[in-house]
Amino acid sequence: MSALLEVRNLATEFGAKLGLRAVNDVSFRLERGKVLGLVGESGSGKSVTGFSIMGLLDRPGRVVDGQILFDGTDLATLSDAEMRRLRGKRIAMVFQDPMMTLNPVLTVGTQMIEAVRAHDPVSKDVARQRSRDALGLVGIPSPDERLSAYPHEFSGGMRQRVAIAIALLHHPDLIIADEPTTALDVTIQSQIISEFQKLAEQSNTAVIWITHDLAIVSRLADDIAVMYAGRLVETGSVEEVLGDPRHPYTRGLIMSVPSQNHRGEPLRQIPGMTPAINRLPPGCSFRTRCEQATDACAAMPDLMSEGSRAFRCFHPVARIDA
């Protein structure tokens, strides 16, 4: 079966002279109706990967290598105009800050109607109808009245739901959700994730869920891709990667989560800190923090496959013991 999205060796750079590689050699595939969890630490390149797919990179940033095959077309080669036609229609993005989607000086209704009519030549009334339905769908009470409200009249959680409703307006094939619940409360977070789960399942939408929270990903995603310093270090199904991590970094991340540790004992921790992207050690980027490192690691390991999963390490760890 051909994948809805297949990213091959994506590389994205910032800075004209420096060639700052924020994303390097990233490859993954995603099928319709599946959820991919993209996890990694701050600055590891998760958002930049998302922006690269969306064609929304900030000015100095550009895709310098690789292909982004979406339903057979390479998004990296499309013009801005062609990309704009896809965006919002077949691919949509939900940001961590809903105000990146919402304009504070327009009512929610105006913005949603515009969003509908940007891709479908329908009358205002039809567009309003659809907007209202979309708001109802994400669990906003009395959507009719809410359409005439301004974004600031909503709470943070409701704003994020509006942003999700907008992303869902055209039943896109792919949604990229960039930490959409990180800024929200636990209870509101589960409300939103549960809406999202329902909606994505119903319309067979593929989702890339970007987060640093392994717990969310474990319950939400089918597949998982772990990034470190701009590269994918491990991919596979949630069960494989979280249940039996092969890369030392993935393993370290899982084991440092408090609920994976015994109370009263120190948390198992990854030593050191993430190096800045322009200060990576030569060879395996994780080398400075890795307990397993040997001289062999002075070369960059390739992504090695093992069945349906893959990892980037010369000395993969055996089955987790805890």
Binding site: P271, G272, M273, P275, A276, N278, R279
Partner: peptide
């Protein structure tokens, strides 16, 4: 505790 000897190159 592990400390990185280098500061970010700002």
């Amino acid at each position: 505790l592990p400390v990185m000897p280098e500061a970010p190159p700002e």
